[in-house]
Amino acid sequence: MTIDVYSVILALLAAATAGLVGAFALMKKTVLAGDVMSHIAIPGLGLAVIWNLNPIVGGALTLFLGAFMISRLEKKTALSSEAAVGVIFASSVALGALLINSKEELIDALFGGFKNIPPGEFAFGVAASAVIFATLWAMRNKLIIGLFSEDLAASTGIKTGTINFTFLILFSLAILVGLRFLGALLAGALIIVPASAARQLTHSLGMFLGCSVLLAIASMVAGLIISSVYGLDLGPTAIVVASIIFALSLLKTKK
């Protein structure tokens, strides 16, 4: 397997954005909803195969459509976001499995692969990562107040609806950046697992955010090395590493 430096850079950016978005998602208690969100990319990956598009384009198409539908369903019906995400997730997986009729392509869509990426996709990944970092930095104060209490945020003049929707978009972008490497099933895992381990290990906000990013990057680096040495798939390897880090973090007793 030849290792392409652009793919490595993008894989590390994917890890960093997943770690940062994951830390905020964990505090917002939306990690699981977010994880499930990544599955909404599956029919998009299927459409990309059929229409011969870049898989990220297809994934983006259904992911943003899904994000939009979830926020509409929450607003227009009495459904909780859990239920809204659940319904869209289940139908996405089924639709995706129907659309992708080659077993091999289905496995790639679900678990990802480490392939050389076209320049356009690299540029998109770098731009998306920059948007994620810049937007999170710009809205960090509003996010912090909102995740403590939406009422207090509203009393401070913060439009929590806008903040939440923006976060959902950033979350979808983070999934998209990682989709190529981790696949639709595991893209969300790099958002949940390192953040959860970091939460075990730290007590202050700054340390938590930094630790989450570092652990995600460490998982990806170890995943890249181990998978290339032993000829394994990158996605599952990186997530197993992240899970081992999480298991080790449990050894630290919290007060």
Binding site: M27, K29, I144, L147, F148, S149, R199, T202, H203, S204, L205, M207, F208
Partner: peptide, 8 residues
């Protein structure tokens, strides 16, 4: 407030 929120 989540007791485990790392926010002071």
């Amino acid at each position: 407030a989540d007791r485990h929120l790392p926010i002071d």
